[in-house]
Design a binder for these strands. Structure first.
Lengths: 136, 136
DNA sequence: AGACCTGTTAGAATAGTTCTAATTCCTTCT
DNA sequence: AGAAGGAATTAGAACTATTCTAACAGGTCT
């Protein structure tokens, strides 16, 4: 579903950053399997293409992608941060039985309704909605 | 608004657990200043009443209170876990300028609307809504 | 009082992430 | 092309928040 080809080089350039093999491969790994991997998981996947990459670089690349708005960071409780290339507004459903995370499409109407609970003076830049439960 | 006096001893007993000075003081500290303190902050506050308490015990007590449903755990990104004695359904607003966290009342209608985004088969036990932004 | 169980404690251990300093790699500039 | 300078990468140390471990204390029940 509808992620544009790859604005990676463009987005990097817009922020005055270079396109490097490491950044490309990290990004492609995220696009390739959208299962909300942790940094360690990304590291493992990237190593098959680029065995010399270091974990620190994976962290650096992920952070870069996040600041370029190409990737979202997702946190569940105290678990490791997970990374998600889905840029559409969406909620997350965390299946407690399997540990898997599912993206849940978030219609604009719902998003607006949620934002309407904020009293005047509160200006939300982002909203994060996380379900926890089990899936049949 | 409207937290019952203190069901602490009762709730502990219900779970077959003892009422100890440590548990009482940790709970009272949370009720006393509802600013979503971290475990370290709770530790510091409790020490004024009970200087010999250990950090491990604070963690233990907090976990006990959470499992007795007297306290909620709140996480923002990678920051330390924060603790919140507000049991009403509510969202959190994280002010990026001050670092402060505000409880936002969550009307049942909004909660239902949010839950309605889940496709059939997804059974949510809990929903967590977090705003990030700034407050005038 | 003795046995038993729950809870507390200090400190070690762990997990995830960030920091540091050294090196490598581009990109200009001449 | 060669040199300078900045950006990116790397390995490993450091750090933070939390959990674990093992020993000890305190209350309870006979």
């Amino acid at each position: 579903m509808g992620n544009l080809p790859e604005p990676l080089a463009q987005r990097l350039a817009d922020s005055g950053l270079r396109t490097t093999p490491q950044r490309e491969i990290v990004y492609h790994v995220l696009l390739g399997k959208r299962d909300h991997p942790t940094a360690e998981e990304v590291f493992a996947r990237v190593k098959t293409d680029l065995p010399t990459i270091s974990l620190a670089t994976v962290y650096n690349c992920l952070e870069t992608l996040v600041t370029c708005n190409l990737v979202r960071q997702v946190n569940f409780e105290r678990g490791p941060t997970r990374y998600c290339p889905n840029l559409e507004p969406h909620a997350h459903f965390h299946d407690e039985a399997t540990g898997k995370t599912h993206d849940i499409e978030l219609p604009p109407a719902v998003l607006d309704h949620v934002k309407s609970v904020l009293p005047p003076g509160f200006d939300a830049r982002s909203v994060e909605i996380t379900f926890r439960g089990s899936k049949r």
